[in-house]
C-alpha cells in the first residue's frame, strides 16, 4: 500500500493550540496548549474529571461520536490539522490508535482481531501471505507471538487480561499508526501484568509516539519521558518526567503527585 505518509517535518507528534471543548454546555477543556514530542512516551496525569481522557479522545476525534460535543482550537498530528476540511475522522483514527482501560478485544479469533482494522481500510483483501506476515509482525511487536502462534484461530476473548491488552495494542499496528493513545491501559490488570504491559509500552517507544493517561503516579514516573499535569480542564505543568517528580514548578502539581489531593 503506497500511502501519502506525512513527512515528519516537526519533532512534534501532537500539537494542541487553544483547545476548548464543551459537552453540551459544560466546558471540559480550557485553552489547552500542548506539544507532545514524537517518539516519546508522555504521561497525562491529574485527578478524576480533570479532562485527561477528554483530551486523549480529542486527539483521534472519537469525542465527536457523542454528538453533543463542540470544540474550538486546533490539533495537529505530525504537522497535519486533524480538523482540516479534507481530514476524515476515519483516516485520523487509523493513524492515531486508541487503547482502553478495560481490554476490549472483539469477539473474533486472535488473527481476525489483528487484521480487523486493516480489512476495513483495504480496498481489496490483502493476500493470505501478506495477512499472515502482518499478523506475525504485529504480534511479535507486542511480545505475544510466541505465546499465541499456535492458537491464532482461538477466540481472543479467552485470553488472559494481560494478553488481551497486548492484543488490543497489536491490532492497531497493521494500519501503521504514528501515535498511540492509551487510556489507563493497566488499571484493569494485576501488578505482574501491569509490569509486562509497561515493558511493552516502553519497547514501542521510539517507533510510536505514545500518550498515556494514568492515575498511577509510580507508573507515570517509571514509564514516561514527559509528564503533563492537568487540573480542572487546563494544563498546569508540562515537563520532563524526572523534573516533574523531583522539582515540580507549581504548587498544585507538587500537592497532587505527593498525594495531598486527587
Amino acid at each position: 500500500m503506497a500511502e501519502p505518509q506525512a513527512e515528519p517535518s516537526a519533532d512534534l507528534a501532537i500539537e494542541v493550540r487553544g483547545l476548548n471543548l464543551w459537552y453540551g454546555t459544560f466546558q471540559a477543556l480550557f485553552e489547552v496548549d500542548l506539544d507532545i514530542e514524537a517518539g516519546n512516551v508522555t504521561a497525562l496525569i491529574g485527578p478524576s474529571g480533570c479532562g485527561k481522557s477528554t483530551l486523549l479522545r480529542s486527539c483521534n476525534r472519537i469525542v465527536e461520536r457523542l454528538g453533543y460535543v463542540s470544540t474550538t482550537g486546533t490539533i495537529r498530528v505530525l504537522g497535519h490539522d486533524i480538523h482540516a476540511g479534507t481530514a476524515s475522522p476515519i483516516q485520523v483514527r487509523r493513524h492515531v490508535g486508541m487503547v482502553f482501560q478495560r481490554p476490549n478485544p472483539l469477539p473474533l479469533s486472535i488473527r481476525d482481531n489483528v487484521l480487523f482494522a486493516q480489512r476495513l481500510h483495504a480496498a481489496h483483501g490483502p493476500s493470505r501471505a501478506d495477512q499472515d506476515a502482518a499478523v506475525e509482525q504485529a504480534l511479535r511487536e507486542v511480545l505475544l507471538w510466541d505465546r499465541v502462534k499456535d492458537r491464532l484461530h482461538h477466540r481472543a476473548t479467552g485470553l488472559s487480561l494481560e494478553e488481551q491488552q497486548k492484543l488490543c495494542i497489536a491490532r492497531l499496528l497493521p494500519t501503521k499508526p504514528a501515535v498511540l493513545l492509551m487510556d489507563e491501559p493497566c488499571s484493569a490488570l494485576d501488578p505482574a501484568a501491569t509490569a509486562a504491559v509497561e515493558d511493552l509500552i516502553w519497547s514501542l517507544r521510539g517507533r510510536y509516539s505514545i500518550l498515556i493517561v494514568t492515575h498511577n503516579m509510580a507508573q507515570a514516573r517509571r514509564a514516561s519521558d514527559q509528564c503533563v499535569f492537568m487540573l480542572m480542564g487546563r494544563v498546569v505543568e508540562h515537563s520532563a518526567t524526572e523534573q516533574m517528580f523531583v522539582a515540580p514548578q507549581r504548587q498544585e502539581t507538587a500537592d497532587y503527585i505527593e498525594g495531598r489531593f486527587g
Binding site: 483521534n60 472519537i62 461520536r65 475522522p89 476515519i90 483516516q91 485520523v92 483514527r93 487509523r94 490508535g97 486508541m98 482502553f100 478495560r102 476490549n104 478485544p105 472483539l106 469477539p107 473474533l108 480487523f116 482494522a117 476495513l120 481500510h121 488490543c168 491490532r171 492497531l172 494500519t175
Partner: peptide
C-alpha cells in the same frame, strides 16, 4: 452486545455500518 466492542471498532476507524455488520449483528 457490549458497548466496548463498538468503541473498539469506531476507534479503529470503522463506520457505524461496518461495526454493525462485522460485530453487532453476528453477535
Amino acid at each position: 452486545v457490549p458497548k466496548a466492542f463498538r468503541e473498539a471498532c469506531w476507534n479503529m476507524g470503522a463506520t457505524r455500518w461496518q461495526t454493525i455488520w462485522h460485530i453487532v449483528l453476528p453477535n
